[in-house]
């Protein structure tokens, strides 16, 4: 596992990707820092940090795109998957490599608050919680990127796919607030939404078992439960779609870190999100080898 971690890190700095990433991140932060802090004579570095999300949205796919896609294209996956290393170890090593590079970038941006700290009253607490938040957010983004990179052997598709998925997570908040009133918030819409999810579940079960009875039985039972619940207590279903989307929203939870609040539930959410996508990656690799 350390062999792959070392190899990936070395690769970032042997190719242009590592330097370009650090240069762009630090350079853009410097520009925003000059505009917000220096020219306005403000010490609110947290305002600068709120731009990190956009930077990461663009830069993270570049870090993760080649992790697995390039191995598949060069057929070097035949070396790593026939070596005495577990798939989970390989995924973890590649995830950590990208995370370490991203953390180096974050660490470099910490120079900016240190630069202005002697000349004014800079409150470090919100800056530090925001950094903690970004570490968690970046880990989640990288996990998504690793997963998408597993799915394709084309780096460009991996990068664009990762960007699109992250963008969807990013704007989920807006989607949720757009849906919170109007027909989508009604209980009927919720039932349709659940039915659609169950249809998807049925398809997934059928796809993996090829058993039409198993595929139809479980979703039908669940649907019956939902309908019974709807008849008994329709209020449960009010605004359900919005609740679900809100729950998945990666940015909604992030804002509390930017405000200097550390919420254990949010930390657990991000770590779970990250582990879930790494787990999907391992499974996707195993599934492809079993197919």
């Amino acid at each position: 596992m350390t062999a792959i971690l070392k190899k990936e890190l070395r690769n970032y700095f042997n190719s242009w990707i590592g330097y370009v990433f650090l240069f762009i991140l630090v350079g853009l932060t410097g520009i925003i820092f000059s505009l917000i802090n220096l020219l306005n004579q403000s010490t609110a570095f947290v305002n600068v940090m709120s731009y990190f999300t956009i930077f990461m949205l663009i830069l993270m796919p570049v870090l993760t795109m080649r992790l697995f896609a390039e191995e598949a294209r060069q057929k070097t996956d035949q070396l790593i998957f026939t070596s005495p290393v577990t798939v989970a170890g390989i995924v973890a090593a590649k995830f950590l490599a990208a995370l370490i590079l991203a953390l180096i970038g974050l660490a470099l941006t910490f120079i900016f608050p240190l630069l202005i700290a002697p000349y004014g009253t800079l409150s470090f607490a919100p800056v530090l919680t925001a950094y903690l938040g970004y570490i968690l957010l970046i880990a989640a983004f990288i996990a998504v990127g690793v997963f998408i990179s597993v799915l394709t052997d084309n780096q460009i598709i991996a990068a664009v796919g990762t960007f699109v998925v992250m963008l969807v997570f990013y704007i989920m908040d807006w989607i949720a607030s757009g849906l919170s009133s109007g027909p989508a918030a009604s209980a009927t819409a919720s039932i349709i939404f659940i039915a659609a999810l169950l249809a998807l579940l049925a398809y997934l079960i059928y796809n993996s078992t090829k058993n039409i009875y198993a595929a139809s039985l479980l979703p039908l039972i669940l649907l019956a439960v939902v309908v019974a619940l709807y008849v008994a207590r329709p209020a449960v279903f009010d605004g359900l779609i919005v609740k679900v989307i809100r729950w998945f929203s990666i940015m909604d939870r992030f804002n509390s870190f930017n405000n200097g609040v550390i919420n254990i539930a949010d930390i657990v959410y991000y770590i779970t999100f990250t582990i879930a996508f790494l787990y999907f990656s391992v499974n996707a690799i195993e599934k492809r080898r079993w197919a």
Binding site: N11, Q74, K75, Q78
Partner: peptide
């Protein structure tokens, strides 16, 4: 394998 699994870079 049929294509040597080497890293070009």
């Amino acid at each position: 394998p049929d294509m040597p699994p080497v890293y070009g870079e």
